[in-house]
Simulated assay, not measured.
Amino acid sequence: MTPEDRFSGPEPHRTGPHPHQDLDVLPYGSYFEPNQPQEYPGSPEDQPDEPDAAFHGYGGARYLEQHWPVAGHEAPQAAGYPPFQPVARTADDPPTIELGPPLSLEDNPYAATVPAQATDPGPVGPLYVVGDVHGYLDELLTALHQQGLVDSEGHWSAGRARVWFLGDFTDRGPDGIGVIDLVMQLAAEAAAAGGYCRALMGNHELLFLGAHRYGDEPVQSTAGTASFRAAWLLNGGQQQDLERLQGHHISWLKRLPAIALEDDHLLLHSDTTAYLEYGSSIDEVNDAVHDLLADEGADEWWDAFRRFTKRFAFRGTAGPMAAGELLATYGGHRVVHGHSPIPYLTGEANADSGEPPYVPGPYIYADELAVAMDGGVTMEGKLLVARLPVD
């Protein structure tokens, strides 16, 4: 019996063929996969090329076979979906945390369409993370509904649950602006219900904003002159997203944090140690990125995009040391990230079988110090939504 037999449910909705897109590239056309920092022994290039060997060589990696009927709260059942099974709250649920200031209309116009939050909302709810979406709105709605986070009409149905998106809302898929609108809508609806829906800034947010602000203006890259628009198009930029981008989208995107700590999980978009170059605390990193986007020029924006496009820092024999350095600096017991599709981390993307990659759930690796959440939706994989902790 396969895991799919044990956890039967509807196939994720597909918006159509997903044109295969390799890893992010810089305008001169090579993969941006830098060597490990010198202080870490080994590098990704030391790993074998065979998929099986690669899977077993990445610091004690394993899949979490996570499937859809996982819920910590009531949710309505829609036609064609399996019934959700509520789970009783226990003393092990996450402690109450500060939910932060209320959303303003300037930051999120959806805040005006939902009622005010109750004065006694009750205990905090479970914590979820969402991997890279890349414009696949229908797949996102299906995945959120399967976890009981939205109802059949796409509205928040999770009460005081907490959700973090790990970045990369746009590019490659058909409706990046629709994804941003949905996340902003859910942020307002969740706040009114006593929960929250928040998001990190990914490298594609930097790229998208740069394409809007700087267009074809030359920037100095390590390989000569480039531009944000050229890099954006090369990495799956969709013209309709740029045409539909509005001021409130820009304001919201520019204020996204780059890094967060929730329930002892260090949440990042990119599997890189480049965050260390922006500060020795979470606040310092986020302030540095926000200051850069507010005041600096095209070359500084480009440098930030270049740094946060790095990947694979937690892979290989040096991976646990790299993840451990981030955890020692910013806190937490495990890194949770998007950015690098799981089929590339496992080596399955190198297998020329012609079949869609097998992604049963989040991928735990680097001696269990890291969890990868990019299920490879852009390459016919899966858009992952998972409840933390995963074990």
Rank of each mutant, 00 (worst) to 15 (best):
H249N: 05
H249Y: 08
H249V: 08
H249E: 05
I250Y: 08
I250R: 14
S251R: 15
S251M: 13
S251A: 15
S251G: 14
S251V: 15
W252L: 10
W252F: 14
L253N: 10
L253G: 06
K254I: 04
K254C: 10
R255W: 09
L256V: 02
L256T: 02
P257A: 12
P257G: 12
P257Y: 06
P257F: 10
A258W: 12
A258D: 00
A258P: 01
A258V: 13
I259C: 10
I259Y: 04
A260F: 06
L261P: 13
L261Q: 14
L261G: 13
E262Q: 15
D263L: 04
D263G: 08
D264I: 13
H265T: 13
H265Q: 15
L266K: 14
L266E: 07
L266S: 12
L266R: 14
L266G: 12
L266N: 12
L267D: 05
L267M: 12
L267T: 10
L268H: 12
H269Y: 14
H269D: 10
H269A: 10
H269E: 07
S270K: 10
S270V: 13
T273N: 13
T273R: 12
A274I: 04
A274Y: 04
A274R: 11
A274N: 09
A274F: 03
A274C: 11
A274K: 08
Y275A: 11
Y275M: 04
E277G: 07
E277S: 12
E277I: 03
E277N: 15
G279S: 11
G279C: 09
S280P: 09
S280R: 14
S281D: 01
I282T: 07
I282W: 06
D283C: 06
E284Y: 00
E284V: 00
E284T: 00
V285R: 02
V285Q: 02
N286L: 07
N286V: 03
D287E: 08
D287Y: 01
A288K: 04
A288D: 02
A288W: 00
A288I: 01
V289D: 01
D291M: 02
D291G: 02
D291N: 09
L292E: 06
L292Q: 09
L293T: 01
L293G: 00
A294C: 07
D295K: 11
D295Q: 08
E296T: 01
E296C: 09
E296G: 00
G297W: 05
G297L: 00
G297P: 05
G297S: 04
A298K: 08
A298E: 05
A298I: 05
A298Q: 05
D299Q: 04
D299E: 03
D299C: 01
D299K: 06
E300A: 13
E300C: 03
E300H: 03
E300T: 03
E300Y: 00
W301L: 13
W302M: 04
W302H: 05
W302R: 03
D303M: 12
A304S: 10
F305D: 09
F305V: 08
F305A: 11
F305Q: 09
F305W: 15
F305T: 04
